[in-house]
Design a protein around this nucleic acid. Structure first.
Lengths: 111, 111
DNA sequence: ACTGTATATAACCATATGGTTATATGAAAC
DNA sequence: GTTTCATATAACCATATGGTTATATACAGT
């Protein structure tokens, strides 16, 4: 994934349980990297890599604060992906509605 | 990803543009594999692989019909993922609300 | 300046992903 | 039964992913 568009990156970022857990944690407030890393068995560099993935997806930002780097969620970044899924369901429902209408109008006696 | 839970598989499945395109196409109606493959420059086996990913995620099902195999969307499979994202936003909004309340009550003069 | 703490980077490794071509299978048509 | 069409599988390849350990960097405290 060299220069992948947002949707790719966001969905990919959310496809890993560790990253989802990070996101959920951040949805309750900002966290330093160590605070996040403590919850996992994996090494600190591994956590940093996950944070990089989330940052590239636009889901989080990191800013220095003293010697820590605090991570903050930008849930706005999830919007497009959520929209995509919603739209998909909408189409589907419209399809179901159409089917129902069809059944109602063309073959009521079959039901 | 050996025995990954649903969320992992669904998000991963949606992280590829070809697979999202397939899903969008299927949201307009069932399609045979060839019908789907024609839209892409990639080979038919590549498309089959993408369909496998979508099927393992529970997003589509395939059934024989004559010598074709028709693909059908099961948008229900997207539900859990959409919910997850929605919940994440909800937490975030609650946090913003709390912050606002805090600002209102503790330091109205700073605004 | 020196030490410790927080985080990032480098180098490495095993496995997964996404693609290819060639071939096998399954049902249809002749 | 042989051919043909639709699809899947096998074998292969390059690159990406997710992890590790060791090391570098950045700031804080003394």
């Amino acid at each position: 994934m060299k220069q992948t568009p947002r949707l790719d990156r966001v969905f990919h970022a959310l496809a890993h349980p560790a990253r989802r857990r990070i996101v959920q944690d951040l949805s309750r407030g900002d966290r330093a990297v160590m605070q996040l890393a403590q919850q996992f068995t994996m090494s600190q560099p591994a956590v940093t890599k996950h944070l990089n993935v989330l940052e590239r997806a636009g889901i989080i930002v990191r800013r220095r604060q003293g010697r820590e780097r605090r991570c903050r969620l930008r849930p706005h970044a999830l919007r497009a992906s959520a929209e995509w899924m919603r739209r998909c369901e909408t189409f589907w429902n419209r399809r179901l509605d159409a089917l129902e209408t069809l059944l109602d109008t063309t073959a009521p006696e079959d039901r």
